[in-house]
């Protein structure tokens, strides 16, 4: 407790509440309001409507939501497998090779998303591999961007795992694969789930790389929102953004439930 006087505490809370309301509360409230406003010519909308949400569940916006969810799920799942594999393997490597490999797996997070998209565009618009204009290139872009994130999260989890568990398991006769399946992976499960859910969330909101590589047939929700707002349909854009945020949060909360269960068991 830093501030002892009642009035001082109240002042601190008031200032914090005010800052929070202006910086976080107001924007959220406004975008939520915009998503249900019919006409907005004055200070506040003149009437409210659910039309924008109705617009977004049908037609192309609904497809875009599906595309985003599929892209996020596939890219996150692949990143999870590959990141876990890398983090596990790297535990058995020591010294300079380990540091080098560790840096390599982290680097994608340091490269701007637009440049990742540009690289894929340049690399896969020419032989030997032509992927430009395919769905796959979008998934690849998302995978590259979240791979470092998954790797980092899993290796942090493994780093915090006391060696005792695996050693006791080994002394009891468990071989490498059995140990991995029955001890190591269940114990780091919360980290795996956290890695998956945050990479899924990141993928859902990804714009920079997607906008560079997406084909007309595979438009993600953020790209759709941008083109709506670019066309001036900002209320529809607001409604879609709300849908995107809520979908992301639902998945996150659902997965964190699973994660708490995994951690408790």
């Amino acid at each position: 407790m830093l501030v002892w006087s009642r009035s001082g505490r109240r002042l601190a809370w008031f200032l914090a509440a005010l800052l929070f309301a202006v910086i976080y509360g107001l924007p959220i409230a406004m975008i939520a309001l915009a998503s249900i406003s019919g006409q907005w010519n004055g200070v506040l909308p003149s009437h409210l409507t659910l039309m924008h949400f109705a617009n977004s569940v049908q037609g192309e916006s609904g497809d875009q939501l599906r595309v985003s969810i599929m892209t996020g799920a596939i890219a996150s799942a692949v990143a999870l497998v590959s990141g876990t594999c890398a983090a596990l393997a790297l535990r058995r490597i020591a010294g300079a090779p380990k540091r080098l490999l560790d840096a390599i797996f982290f680097i994608p997070s340091a490269v701007p998303s637009v440049s990742v998209g540009l690289g894929l565009l340049v690399a896969f618009s020419q032989p030997p591999v032509l992927l430009n204009g395919t769905t796959l290139i979008v998934v690849i872009a998302h995978f590259v961007l979240i791979s470092a994130f998954t790797y980092g999260s899993v290796s942090a989890g493994l780093g915090r795992l006391a060696p005792d568990y695996e050693q006791v398991a080994e002394s009891l006769g468990a071989r490498a694969f059995y140990r991995l399946r029955r001890v190591t992976l269940p114990l780091v499960a919360p980290y795996l789930i956290a890695a998956f859910s945050l990479s899924f969330a990141f993928s859902m909101g990804e714009l920079g790389a997607t906008v560079m590589v997406y084909p007309p047939g595979w438009v993600t929700l953020p790209v759709g929102i941008f083109s709506l707002s670019d066309r001036g349909a900002i209320f529809d854009a607001a409604a879609l953004t709300i849908i995107l945020a809520v979908t992301t949060l639902i998945v996150l909360i659902g997965l964190s439930r699973v994660s708490t269960k995994a951690a408790v068991r």
Binding site: A86, A89, L101, F105, V111, S115, V116, F143, Y151
Partner: peptide, 25 residues
Amino acid sequence: DFAGLWIGPPLLILAGLFLYPLALI
């Protein structure tokens, strides 16, 4: 202990999808 060799597949994927495009840039 060849467990370290499991680094191969993820490294190959990263090389093909990330390092190769960077090199082309």
